[in-house]
Design a protein around this nucleic acid. Structure first.
Length: 552
DNA sequence: GAGTTTGAAACT
DNA sequence: CAGTTTCAAACTC
């Protein structure tokens, strides 16, 4: 039998006092004593702190049709610093009736998976008090033995009626108002601060990233302090941790890890932050952040995983296979990107939102999924499972190989031309015609002299768009019908690498000629066009498959 | 979803 | 006030 039920002297409590939660700003820090007087509706009146416990009682008669007003945890108030205070319906953010016991949610909790008993219910209205000033219930208890009339019960502790809870034998409702009044009195008799907020001051704003949290001084302090023994104060068992504040001198915890500079604490926040970001990204993807024809963004696996789609040799694979026989150390070339390094950077650099190259964004690995620690949700191309990192790598190699091949081919052509000239020279030597010699030189190497002079641009400074283009190149560009293509090509590592490679060849090859460049361009761009065309085809196929699948 | 762990609240 | 029990949330499997 409850002690309270036998010892309460209700008569002695008829000396009704009221808690005035409508105290104006700047008033007493906590409960104010005031005589009964007309008050706004929905304002709960509780005994004052200055009353003797024996005198405490509550005027609940007028509450039968009211709600026992909850207050918002401090951090939630802080959360909407730009919006009107949560407590505005009380006209004062200062006095709080309720205890935030176990109701304080970790800022990140809102973004995490709802707890089992919360997930099945509609939650919006419980968190709505932030905007409409309407006090809303926030939790659903599952009490079984306390009748929801003890502080074990979150609702009771929060100063609200149970409504829609899973509790058994609940007395925390209008129908049991008398019992509840009594319980409140007993609770206050036991501890006048029972319904006071436990956190002395505002914790950190939840908007602050978890990464920053670990480095930021949290200003709140638990009035009583926690007494944790096993949780290290890094689990929500700990009221301090739950309130997102550091443990303080008030705490009597053991093996506390909830202090500033704690590596364990930092790790916990970072892990939580990572999960939050993943969830946010996933939600964003599900809610339509991705294109209708794109696959749903997946959570990035820690380990790189090569998709098994197109496990057989695709067009790209076949195309790239031909490069294998040519690959003989070309990777050191400028056009050969250090994909390994780039992948590493991408994986560990949350800000690496810009892909290495246009192709890289299609590569089916971390580039098209969510980067841990990043809030950026990237578009997942339909080529995501088509084009692999290795394919890009191979493409780089292919372009280099082709470049070299073109150079070699042109060297042979030029050799023939030179021999032809030599022949002409010998034939004309007897004629001593300086004019004919000059003519022949102009025919063979019209640009060589130009390139040999100081006007040869430095490879780094070359603006590819200002360069003279071969008819073949122009033709290819016309094929593309898109100026941006060229811009993109010049802007990405792969193409610019090849460009630079070409330019280096051009500048380093003292007798490099326009014909050489033209041939190189023709070979490389033609092949590149073929590769892209293959990609487009595969993308279209995959896209159409996706659409069909979605329609089913 | 059931069972376990945890620490605040309640009780002695 | 310290130790124990009760309780329900948090957590694990």
């Amino acid at each position: 039998m409850e002690k309270s039920e036998t010892t309460l002297d209700l008569a002695a409590r008829r000396f009704v006092r009221h808690l005035d939660f409508t105290a104006v700003r700047g008033g007493p820090a906590y409960l104010t004593l005031s005589p009964p007087m007309p008050r706004p509706q929905n304002i709960l009146q509780l005994p004052t702190q200055s009353c003797s416990p024996a005198q405490l009682t509550l005027d609940f008669q007028s509450l039968s049709q009211r709600r026992w007003i909850p207050s918002q945890p401090r951090w939630q108030q802080q959360r909407t610093s730009q919006s009107p205070p949560v407590m505005s319906y009380l006209q004062s953010p200062r006095p709080q009736l309720v205890s935030p016991v176990r109701r304080l949610q970790h800022p990140s909790q809102k973004l995490l998976v709802k707890r089992k008993h919360e997930s099945s219910r509609s939650q919006p209205q419980h968190n709505a008090g932030l905007k409409d000033n309407t006090p809303k219930k926030q939790k659903h208890c599952n009490c079984k033995n306390s009748r929801c009339l003890k502080l074990y019960c979150e609702c009771f502790a929060a100063g609200i009626y149970c409504d829609g809870c899973n509790c058994l034998n609940c007395h925390n409702n209008v129908d049991n108002e008398a019992a509840r009044q009594e319980a409140v009195g007993i609770t206050l008799e036991r501890n006048l601060n029972a319904f006071r907020p436990k956190i002395a001051s505002s914790p950190l704003k939840p908007e602050v990233s978890m990464e920053e949290v670990s480095e930021t001084q949290v200003t709140g302090k638990h009035n009583k302090g926690c007494h944790c023994k096993k949780s290290g104060c890094l689990k929500k068992y700990c009221e301090c941790f739950q309130a997102n504040i550091l443990c303080s001198e008030n705490c009597k915890c053991m093996d506390c890890k909830n202090f500033e500079g704690s590596d364990e604490r930092r790790a916990v926040f970072q892990e939580e932050y990572r999960l939050v970001q993943i969830r946010q990204a996933t939600n964003a993807a599900i809610s339509g952040a991705v294109g209708p024809s794109s696959s749903v963004t997946h959570i990035t696996p820690k380990k790189r995983k090569i998709p098994e789609i197109f496990s057989g040799k695709s067009f790209i694979d076949q195309t790239f296979d031909m490069t294998a026989q040519y690959q003989q150390g070309h990777h050191s070339n400028s056009a050969c990107l250090d994909l390994k390094a780039c992948e590493t950077n991408k994986e560990f650099d949350p800000t690496a939102s810009s892909p290495l190259s246009p192709l890289a964004s299609f590569v089916s690995d971390t580039a098209n999924t969510i980067i841990p620690g990043s809030s950026i949700s990237t578009y997942r191309s339909v080529l995501a499972d088509v084009l692999q990192t290795q394919n890009v790598k191979n493409l780089c190699s292919l372009l280099v190989v082709l470049s070299g091949e073109a150079t070699k081919k042109n060297a042979e052509m030029r050799g023939k031309e030179v021999r032809k000239i030599e022949t002409r020279k010998s034939e004309a030597s007897t004629a001593s015609s300086a004019q004919s010699l000059q003519d022949s030189r102009e025919v063979v190497t019209p640009d060589c002299e130009n390139h040999a002079n100081k006007d040869v641009p430095d490879a780094v400074d070359i603006d590819i768009r200002k360069m003279p283009l071969s008819p073949e190149t122009l033709e290819l560009m016309c094929d593309e019908q898109d100026v941006m293509f060229f811009d993109n090509v010049s802007a990405n590592g792969v193409a610019i690498g090849n460009t630079e490679h070409n330019m280096n060849q051009k500048s380093s090859n003292s007798d490099g000629c326009t014909d050489t460049y033209a041939e190189q361009e023709r070979l490389i761009l033609t092949k590149f066009r073929d590769v892209l065309g293959g990609l487009i085809t595969l993308g279209n196929i995959k896209d159409s498959r996706s659409r069909k699948w979605e329609q089913k």
